[in-house]
Amino acid sequence: MTTKQLALVIDLNVCVGCHACVTSCKGWNNAGEAGPLTDQNPYGADPSGTFFNRVQTFEVGEFPKTETVHFPKSCLHCEDPPCVPVCPTGASYKRAEDGIVLVDYDKCIGCKYCSWACPYGAREIDESQKVMKKCTLCVDRIYDQKLPEAERKPACVLACPTSARLFGDIHDPESEASRAIREQGGYALMPEWGTQPANHYLPRRKTEKHLHADELVRHDNPLKVDGKLPRPDAGEPALDDVTSW
């Protein structure tokens, strides 16, 4: 637990489902060092393509008591990734130094077994290159010394207009990501499989004003006769409720 584990923390309370993370991810990873990230028939009748990140939308509850949840979904970089040990070639691996789960595209034979071994459906085959692909946490950008330090973050994090995506080392208790998980109820997806996802989600939170009965009553007006106070003289300070007569 002392080594680094980079991860995303996604705040579902803030996500507006704009897909900026999807397009920025596609843009960076299509043109970056690891690209291209191919599409099939992108402008045709039956478009398809490989994505590292997708934003899905769910409706919780039953009309009229419903709530819309936008749900960005990408590789969770599990601490115990079930996709890695099943890989027959060693193309899928988890980096010891920062916990990122990666695929070596030159070793992948395209057997798809790792995608079967991922309960989250986070891996997608590139139908043109015939190798398995998945979120890299923009590994080709987060360590790039040529970029200003503020930009050494995954493309999706930089693109998010509502700052719903936090990026950091979740093994460092003082990182922004760790603090968000700890203080805002961060949770993991499908905990029942013991995969220990590194990525966490922050729950929807409702800010409701609870008015108690005594808050509706003016305790500083014991006669309950608002408006019947004697009019102060014109020269008096007119601080209603503060001064008394």
Binding site: V55, Q56, E59, V60, G61, E62, V69, P191, P203
Partner: peptide, 17 residues
């Protein structure tokens, strides 16, 4: 458990593509 929202009635509206 898939999206971590504790509600018995959840339905998908969009899957991202």
């Amino acid at each position: 458990t898939a999206i971590g929202v504790k509600h018995p009635r959840i339905r998908q509206i969009a899957q991202g593509a």
